[in-house]
Design a protein around this nucleic acid. Structure first.
Lengths: 213, 213
DNA sequence: GTCTATAAGGAGATAGAC
DNA sequence: GTCTATCTCCTTATAGAC
């Protein structure tokens, strides 16, 4: 449907993330969030001006403040919705898998794929985190802890069921998340590998890293 | 020696990176670079003001421009010296190892340790990269390509010698570098694991990811 | 090489009309 | 809800004395 209207793919996918986040946001607010995501991921939070965001969204500089209380508020909404979506993805992948091995392949592959397809949002989530206010940082940190917990849970269950051999669950979970999260840093739509390729190779590597031999 | 004079550890290690980079820099220039590294890693390039840097180095705002032509020039010097140091470390570790297995353990362990001990510089190198001018970005990119090449070289040799089993050398090299580079993002001096612990666990995980079974 | 003073140009955010 | 106009503050960088 969106494809028929000519909406670029990047806007489609970012829109689905911003739109499905549970609570409602007006069409103009969504347009502003997309404009901000574009600008923040390209130039960074502080190098982006509110004039930048407003003009990308087809509004005057003052128009931003009807929908968001500040530039930081806009960053927080992007960060919160991005984290929520990522967490929901992981939880769903872990729940619908039959074995720890398949769960691990699915969550690390899926998380890697998400960071490729949404590398703009992924970069904002990772790199602009420190520009949130302390309160907003704390809110986002809680979502991050849930994500870490899902990965550690799968590793622990795999060890208990005898499918995995893991020396240090905490360190291994971090290394696995690093593999997936870092995709947002190096991915570009121009490269040879597709998001699905990345999902496959990173999923396989994850299993290989912990599988019993 | 520095310890006897009361220089904090973080300054010692960053100084060694900035100082040993081949070409000379005056004492005031080094002081400015340390101040900038502190500020950039804490608040990011654009959120840091030249007044910030100058006052941390005990100079007036104008004092910066005697030693560096611009704020971006300061960032470039930090980035260039950080990359050079990291590359030299990897090349040395790869060369002095007897087998691909030991080389891989050494370069990924060593690189991870460097990103823990120098997490300030590591963050600047990774997160502030986009704020360099196109020319400076290109110069730094050349150093990065050398780093990638060292890792791929070790993997290829390990496969040829029958020590490693690797499906996709390119993808595996990226995953290994992600593991090490991402340490700069999550490391903090307050955590339980020391840089040496991180070197050990990440070195072991790297070998496990590719070892023939 | 370092300072004080200042130029020149944004920045985020608000007021008030429509 | 959107606009134009503007306030107030702060930015990088330079000029010129010492």
């Amino acid at each position: 449907m969106s494809a028929a209207t000519g909406t670029p793919l990047s806007e489609q996918s970012i829109l689905s993330t911003l739109d499905d986040a549970g609570d409602t946001a007006g069409a103009t607010a969504v347009r502003l969030m997309m404009a901000a995501a574009d600008a923040f991921s390209d130039k960074g939070f502080h190098a982006t001006t509110t004039r930048d965001i407003a003009s990308r969204a087809g509004l005057s500089p003052a128009g931003v403040y009807v929908h968001f209380t500040s530039k930081e508020d806009l960053l927080f909404e992007l960060s919160r919705r991005g984290h929520q979506r990522a967490r929901d993805l992981l939880v769903a992948a872990a729940e619908k898998s039959d074995s720890p091995t398949e769960a691990l392949r699915s969550i690390i592959g899926g998380f890697s794929k998400w960071h490729a397809e949404h590398h703009q949002l992924g970069r904002i989530v990772q790199y602009e985190f420190r520009h949130l206010t302390p309160e907003h940082r704390e809110a986002v940190l809680n979502l991050r802890r849930e994500i870490d917990k899902v990965v550690r849970g799968v590793l622990t269950e795999g060890v208990e069921r005898g499918e995995f051999e893991v020396d240090d669950v905490h360190a291994t979970a971090l290394a696995l998340l690093s593999m997936a999260v870092d995709v947002a840093r190096w991915y570009s739509p121009e490269i040879r590998r597709t998001p699905d390729d990345i999902a496959r190779t990173n999923g396989d590597l994850a299993v290989r890293l912990v599988a019993r031999r």
